[in-house]
């Protein structure tokens, strides 16, 4: 129904639309409203000239300003990167075990280390650093290769039992399955399992076996040796499991856990940040470096390789992957 009529009260014509008796007055729109509308249209057109807008077959028009969200992110990253430069230099200019004394530096190291850890380490050690069978738990107070911050940094820098880094720590537990009988291994496993409860490592027939085969590395007291990555067998922490089957398997197989070297890939500043992060997860040991070999000489500013120590790729290039192929180590 559409019947225009003049409204009694206002003398204004209605639009003729009638919704259950409710009618609409045909009042004119304010003209500035119209101009506002034209202005928004004009703005939209100008906007599409300056900014990426019109969709094309692949991609869209770029806009004369060359602005992009990717570029924006790259700029932000570059800016943050620049702001972090002082901390990276700070990390390189002090002894690793002194980082903790500088609150600001420690703060940066822990935050940066946490990010690095999630990207690079969590695949094996878990996002909470709790490890898994064969991958050490970094939260506890038991360290195969030492838990002082310099030891940790060295482990991260060069890795364990890898062939890429000549400075990687090495040691190998023999596969006793080829040397001992099944019965001997079963006995040894039972013996080892009783060590945390205070059993004498060297007593009894299994103790003899222990003395002959294991004590060289694990020690007469079975407390291991961090210099050669020999685990403490008297504590409650078992990298490969503490049930008899696991222990038998470990003894006969002789595990060979490998960790890649990170020094070249991440740069020294990031290695130190990671070490600081791991060290404060709950198990880090205090004190000076355990051994001189674990200390990287201080690196002067000029020695920092281009781009080293960045947490990401080249920020100026939005397309660059963080770690290009050629940087990922040798075969």
């Amino acid at each position: 129904m559409s019947e225009k009529r003049i409204d009694d009260v206002t003398g204004t014509e209605t639009t003729g639309h009638n919704w259950d008796g409710i009618e609409e007055l045909n009042n004119p729109l304010p003209r500035w409203w119209l101009w506002t509308f034209y202005a928004t249209v004009l703005f939209a057109v100008i906007y599409t000239i300056f900014f990426p807008a019109w969709p094309l077959v692949s991609g869209a028009t770029q806009g004369v300003l060359g602005w992009s969200t990717r570029g924006e992110v790259a700029r932000d990253i570059a800016q943050i990167d620049e702001g972090q430069q002082q901390y990276r230099e700070g990390l390189l200019s002090v002894d690793v075990h002194m980082i903790r004394d500088n609150e600001e530096l420690q703060n940066y190291a822990v935050q940066a280390g946490a990010a690095l850890f999630r990207n690079n380490c969590s695949q094996c050690h878990g996002s909470g650093a709790a490890g898994a069978i064969g991958y050490p738990n970094l939260l506890d107070d038991d360290w195969l290769w030492g838990g002082r911050i310099e030891d940790i940094a060295h482990t991260i820098r060069h890795g364990i039992r890898n062939e890429e880094d000549p400075d990687a720590r090495f040691s190998q537990m023999p596969a006793f399955g080829e040397m001992l009988t099944e019965g001997e291994i079963a006995g040894l496993a039972r013996h080892v399992q009783s060590l945390p409860d205070g059993a004498d490592p060297l007593s009894g027939p299994a103790g003899q076996l222990f003395a002959d085969n294991c004590a060289t590395c694990h020690g007469d007291d079975a407390q291991g040796d961090p210099e050669i990555g020999a685990p403490d067998l008297t504590d409650a922490i078992w990298l490969y499991g503490s049930d008899l089957a696991s222990l038998e398997d470990t003894i006969s197989r002789g595990p060979y856990g490998v960790m890649p070297p990170w020094g070249e890939r991440l740069g020294e500043a990031n290695v130190r940040a990671l070490a600081a992060y791991v060290h404060q997860l709950g198990g880090g040991e205090a004190g000076e470096p355990r051994s001189e070999t674990n200390v990287e000489e201080q690196i002067g500013e000029g020695d920092v390789p281009e781009g080293a120590g960045r947490t990401g790729g080249d920020p100026s290039d939005p397309d660059e992957v963080p770690f290009p192929e050629e940087a990922s180590g040798t075969d």
Binding site: G126, G128, A130, N137, D140, D141, D235, A236, I237, G282
Partner: peptide, 18 residues
């Protein structure tokens, strides 16, 4: 409470939560 992991066993057999 830190729940990743829910607890940590220490070398002396103690159990620690963070």
């Amino acid at each position: 409470p830190v729940r990743n992991p829910t607890f940590v066993t220490l070398s002396d057999g103690a159990v620690r939560n963070a």
